[in-house]
Design a binder for these strands. Structure first.
Lengths: 295, 295
DNA sequence: GGGCTGCACATTATCGACAAAGAACACAGA
DNA sequence: TCTGTGTTCTTTGTCGATAATGTGCAGCCC
């Protein structure tokens, strides 16, 4: 079966949330930009909604008949794209299960295990190879290089170089650059989470991602910005399955972030560099420690 | 037709050069490592050579009957792997022909134009996307970002960061590290080419590649080492089609390389950094100038 | 015993096919 | 005249199939 219709299902679910009894849905082009899909998909959604008795659809009028109930939604696991499924499965395997460096990776086996075609797995592996965790032997298998201490060191070394450069560029941004407003919004978000840290410490990951991406953006360099994808995916999956000391670790990191943000706001290069170094070396330490306990 | 047998043809051609009348070819495993292919392929080659009357093959004896003539070789264009063909065609298109940034790239069209299946083109584009010259819009086309001045600036900025770090690491290598011997060999190669610069200036590209890769290697960081692939491919194709002032440019660069090598040999960080900066900014200038004339 | 050959089998690279998703265009309604 | 709809066509994402290529094992020869 070519292509699961995950785009359709996901958009359908999101569209269900837009329904308000008595009102009419907006025009097709408007729904397109709202849902981020093409008109073809929007029209499929509308047809399906008619069939489910959710709306009546006649040309421009799409009047809502009833509110959706739980069973109207597609199950969540059917809404994630194939590559996401492959990524999750694969990351689970190499970050959790026995993932000795040097192990061979078999496209066919992986495909069978996940229940997808080989092409999808292949393309995933090619895309994933840029993260430096696997390597291709042409006409032969892939080799797992493993999420080792060595890997983490290399990753973080480059990260430090890039982030120092980006942070300096950020501090030099003109005062009216929108990034400053975003930075302030992020600062507030940090303060909010911090105020209720015991129950909200898990939200740190998202703050972390947003802050660092905002800073990298200032470098105006696609290689630096793209590199952050590697950091993000590694940290994301690693901490997703290693929650030891998460509360303490995240609380500390939020404080560092606040210092970092303050330093950026001063726009003084030395202050920025100092705060940046401090935070990064602390992040390095956390990662290394959690690697040590994992191994 | 799945898989052109380019591995076989290329290895066959290379094997032809090993034939010496009166002697016997080495054992199958030995040929494998000599040609860098599997035993299956080696055996196919041997069978084919028997058929062509080039050798007689009986178990361990593979006695050479006659020397190969021109017609024994497979034509060269049949020996390059599909991905190489796609890469060349594609690079030609975006570095030479009209390659306005923002242009859409069409997998199907590209595949038809090159005469290959869509899968191969797709996989190439995915692999190639890490070079930052194209970007994917999921469920839609690829966007060409173009080999612009902006791109070149970003590329070279990162290159400088990395190379400075690698050069420093190189200077700190223990005296008995094999890299020092390689460096000396490279220095001699530079001197040789320089002595006959008027007729051999085109060999500079290869020297350049070898020297910089050797230096990056010292960083012991896969991200730095892998990044050099981007530099290499961009410089390779760009200068392949922009040979203006090549003699002069390469002559100057060789001299810079020699200075750089000398500086490394002193192992003094300041000397290394100075020579490195000098060479890199000169390389940046050349690239920018040739971009200006091209545009 | 250690390396080589013969053979059977596993895996990769590539293709064409097809449903899902996107894009183009002419017409209709405000 | 402009925005929305109906329709048609193109392109992408995914699959299974198949030749090329690689890999493992049992026996053979020095």
């Amino acid at each position: 079966m070519p292509k699961q219709n995950t785009v359709f299902k996901d958009a359908y679910n999101r569209c269900l949330r837009l329904l308000v009894v008595g009102e009419s849905l907006p025009s097709e082009p408007e729904l397109c930009s709202l849902l981020g899909v093409s008109r073809t998909t929007v029209r499929s959604i509308l047809s399906q909604m008619v069939e489910a008795g959710l709306i009546e659809w006649n040309k421009r009028s799409k009047s809502v008949q009833r509110l959706p109930v739980k069973t109207d939604y597609f199950p969540e696991h059917e809404t994630s794209s194939l590559s996401d499924v492959i990524e999750r499965t694969f990351m689970k395997r190499i970050l959790m299960g026995g993932a000795e460096p040097g192990m061979q990776i078999n496209e066919l086996e992986l495909a069978r295990e996940i229940g997808v075609g080989t092409t999808s797995v292949r393309e995933f592996l090619i895309r994933f190879s840029r993260f430096g965790l696997i390597e291709k032997r042409p006409n032969s298998h892939w080799v797992l290089k493993g999420f080792t201490r060595q890997f983490a060191e290399e990753l973080i070394d480059v990260r430090e170089m890039f982030e120092l450069k980006s942070a300096a560029a950020f501090a030099a941004l003109p005062t009216d650059d929108p990034a400053w407003a975003e930075l302030e919004a992020l600062r507030r978000a940090h303060v909010e989470v911090l105020a209720d840290i015991d129950s909200r410490y898990l939200e740190f990951s998202e703050l972390d991602d947003r802050l660092h991406r905002l800073i990298q953006q200032a470098s105006d360099n696609r290689f630096i910005i793209d590199f952050y994808d590697i950091i993000a995916i590694v940290f994301h999956y690693h901490y997703q399955w290693n929650k030891a000391n998460a509360r303490e670790r995240n609380g500390k990191a939020i404080l560092e972030h606040l210092d970092y943000i303050e330093a950026l706001k001063t726009r003084r290069p030395e202050a920025v560099e100092a705060a940046c170094r401090l935070h990064l070396s602390s992040a390095r330490l956390s990662l290394m420690q959690s690697l040590a306990t994992a191994a």
